[in-house]
Design a protein around this nucleic acid. Structure first.
Lengths: 136, 136
DNA sequence: AACTTAAATAGGAATTGTTCTTGATAAGGT
DNA sequence: ACCTTATCAAGAACAATTCCTATTTAAGTT
């Protein structure tokens, strides 16, 4: 665990917003001013290899990094882009919902939900209310 | 529905191996010899916009395209890279397994499993058997 | 402490998959 | 036939990531 790796890990633990590599990079520059982006990528890779961090990909967007080691899914708000964790329910397994043939072995799963977060839904409602008032 | 779009769609329906854009491109050149890769991308995009095709992304790999419109997950073999469909079980929803707060609305979900397919598991067993025979 | 070896880093170049731009071509409406 | 609009091919541009190389740092040995 080198200085750079520690700094990268601390940034991830600090703001658990599933930052991209570039976001981690700009943040970590505060601590280690001349760290390079390639090093951030390297650190993120070694941290994921050690199992301290999970990498989460979504559609074609940049990879994001998550220090939550619990088994969980992710929710991506289509409007504001925010990412949040959805915990696995107790005593449930993904195999309960999808038919996985018995002869294939599962080592990982990645589950992503997309939709609208409460904040954005509220904002939209306020806007349409304003429109209604105006049109009267 | 133009000639190019039809050709792209036919390739997808023909071999349902979740091909990448480049794989579709090389295949479709058999039908439309001077189609360009950009056009294949365009066709794939319009087809997905129409809802005839689903785009499936996995980690940082190239996007793959799938004409199976049923609600299903995907399984990716880490060894051979093969992709296969896993149907949703009857009367089950992803929300049954992950805790989705009531105030967020889900519009899509994408579920990916990783592991080893039966074919690769068998191959590996054969190899280790051969090793055992040799060492005797 | 000096020496050796191995791993980690900064910086930049290269790669990959995808999107954008431009001009040419074709299709449909009047 | 003419005008309008959409589609297409070709290649340039782009974004995210990986690779490369020379340095730096750390760890272990004498």
């Amino acid at each position: 665990m080198t200085g750079q790796r520690r700094a990268v890990y601390d940034v991830l633990m600090g703001e658990r917003n599933h930052p991209t590599a570039v976001e981690v990079f700009t943040k970590v520059r505060g601590q280690v001013p001349n760290i390079s982006l390639a090093t951030v990528y390297n650190c993120l890779e070694t941290l994921t290899d050690c199992g301290l961090v999970k990498i989460v990909t979504h559609e074609r967007g940049p990879s994001r990094y998550c220090p939550n080691l619990e088994d969980h899914a992710h929710f991506f708000c289509d409007t504001c882009g925010e990412v949040s964790d959805l915990p696995l329910r107790a005593r449930k397994r993904p195999q309960d919902v999808w038919e996985v043939p018995a002869n294939i072995t599962i080592s990982h799963h990645q589950v992503a939900f997309r939709g609208e977060c409460p904040k954005c839904a509220k904002k939209k409602n306020l806007k349409s209310e304003a429109r209604n008032l105006k049109s009267k």
